[in-house]
Amino acid sequence: MRDEELPRRLRDAAGAHRPDRERMLARVERGMAGAGPPARVVRPPRTATPWLRVAAATAAVCGVLAAGTFAVTSAGGEGAHEDRGAAPPSATGTPGGTLRTEDGPLRTDGAVDPHSNAYWAQSNVTLRATEPLASLTVELRIALTGGVTSTGSWRSLPEGDFTVSATEDSSFLIYRWRLKPGRSVPAGTHTFAGQYNHAEGERDPAGDYVTVRAVRASGRPASVGDSFGPDR
């Protein structure tokens, strides 16, 4: 086989590859559960014939494609940002389909403000803490449906205690409030709100959700979340 044929054969092998997502997820779950060491990559001996080298290279390309497919699926379209702990929304609108609204001293509720209108809206996050928090990150995700653009945000806690950002990835407008090191959040009910313009008409918030990650003063972590859709 001529060396110049190798790129074409590799492209053909990569194009014909169809990753088995369910099988990949099952393997990852077994690995996370400690179900044995990861499989080793077997390399052909240096004396392998040319067709063996092509077969090994093709298998390597397929392996890279499969790993890339799983990585994209796991990322859930979040894009590059600091916190990757938030799972993408499920078909029911709740992040990952498993996030609870109450965990230990924390409880959260997400709702669209009743003063929103046909061109502008505000999404409210109500956070209740029954004990002080030493660390807190609130992440509000607004699905980029027609015309969604940021118009600002606010929180009921002191402005100087938080680092605030408003960014976009391929799917969401993301508001993030992060408690600064050395600051704390007292027990009580606190509000975080993100504001945005949108296309004319009533906007469906079913794809919007919030995630909250905190560390209690005792050092124990807690996390909660909620969706904004009508099926919450």
Results as ranks from 00 to 15, higher is better:
Glu139Val: 06
Trp154Ala: 01
Glu102Pro: 06
Asn124Glu: 08
Thr167Asn: 08
Arg128Phe: 07
Trp177Pro: 00
Asp113Val: 05
Gly79Cys: 07
Val138Ser: 01
Glu168Phe: 06
Thr149Ile: 13
Ser90Gln: 07
Thr167Gly: 02
Glu102Ala: 14
Gly96Asn: 00
Ser171Glu: 15
His115Ser: 15
Thr137Ser: 10
Gly104Met: 03
Val112Asp: 03
Phe162Glu: 00
Thr98Asn: 13
Ala80Gly: 14
Leu99Val: 13
Ser135Leu: 14
Leu133Cys: 07
Arg178Cys: 04
Thr98Glu: 04
Tyr175Ile: 09
Pro132Ala: 06
Phe70Trp: 09
Leu173Tyr: 05
Ala166Tyr: 03
Val138Glu: 00
Thr98Met: 12
Gly77Val: 07
Val112Ile: 11
Gly77His: 02
Thr149Met: 13
Ala118Leu: 15
Ala143Phe: 10
Tyr175Val: 06
Arg84Cys: 09
Ser150Val: 03
Ser156Gln: 09
Arg84Tyr: 12
Glu78Trp: 14
Arg84Ser: 08
Pro89Val: 11
Leu136Ser: 00
Trp120Cys: 01
Ala129Trp: 08
Gly77Thr: 04
Arg178Tyr: 05
Val148Ala: 08
Glu102Cys: 07
Asp103Pro: 07
Pro89Met: 06
Ser116Leu: 05
Arg84Gln: 14
Gly146Tyr: 08
Ala75Ser: 14
Gln122Glu: 15
Thr163Asp: 13
Asp109Ser: 09
His115Ala: 11
Ser74Cys: 15
Pro114Tyr: 10
Leu99Ala: 09
Glu78Cys: 10
Gly147Ile: 02
His115Leu: 14
Glu168His: 07
Ser153Ala: 13
Asp113Phe: 09
Asn124Cys: 11
Pro95Phe: 00
Pro132Tyr: 06
Thr101Met: 11
Ala118Thr: 07
Gly110Lys: 00
Arg155Thr: 04
Ala80His: 12
Ala166Leu: 04
Gly79Phe: 05
Asp103Gln: 10
Phe162Pro: 01
Leu133Gly: 03
Gly110Cys: 09
Pro88Arg: 04
Ala86Pro: 05
Arg141Asp: 02
Phe172Thr: 07
Ser135Lys: 11
Gly96Arg: 02
Phe70Met: 14
Glu139Lys: 04
Phe70Leu: 11
Gly97Asn: 04
Asp161Asn: 12
Ala91Phe: 11
Thr137Gln: 08
Leu99Lys: 05
